[in-house]
Design a protein around this nucleic acid. Structure first.
Lengths: 91, 91
DNA sequence: CTATTATATGCCTTGACAAGTATATTCCTC
DNA sequence: GAGGAATATACTTGTCAAGGCATATAATAG
């Protein structure tokens, strides 16, 4: 797992964006409106999320639709799996 | 889920401590030695981890053994479960 | 190709937080 | 209960990242 995911999701607005994108791909202006953030900040957060591989984007007209990517979530799941049974084995 | 867990685990030394504690409860001086950190920093990180409910401690002689707690990991797992099937449903 | 919408980037300021160092506290042993 | 080992806290300092605002780039429509 890339530990970067914790850093990226530790920022509340980014976490909110991720939660919002669970419902499907959304353009920047919709994210901006829903979360009541300023547009540049949303773009910056999306940049961070994209750099971490958590989202990617595609164009529709002038809009950029951002969408969640599976990989980092799968990786986080694998990381978390390693913590599942350690309490059974030890006190 | 408490989003605080992302903040807490976003710090590399804290993540290292958590990984180390997978092997079982350990006293502060052992963590300090293994991770080559200064003792006050380890105590501070453990404080943050404890405040987030990720570890707790018990005494054995003068030592404090720190141990992982299940709850935050379970909660993270539940949070992550919500991301499992969204890619099947949507493109 | 120009205007317009949509999004991205640059720069600055500010706040949060981790490290370093010194010191305080806790707990045991004798 | 005094000394010492183990751990916690206080204080300072430096770094980094997020927000605000201005502006640049991208993309489309007409």
């Amino acid at each position: 797992m890339n530990p970067q995911i914790f850093t990226v999701l530790s920022e509340q607005n980014r976490l909110d964006i991720v939660e919002l994108l669970r419902a499907g791909a959304k353009p920047v202006n919709e994210i901006t409106a829903r979360l009541r953030l300023n547009q540049p900040q949303v773009s910056k957060h999306l940049r961070v999320l994209a750099d971490a591989g958590i989202v990617n984007a595609h164009h529709i007209a002038q809009q950029r639709y951002y969408q969640l990517q599976q990989k980092p979530f799968k990786e986080l799941e694998l990381w978390l799996d390693r913590y599942k049974n350690i309490w059974n084995e030890r006190g």
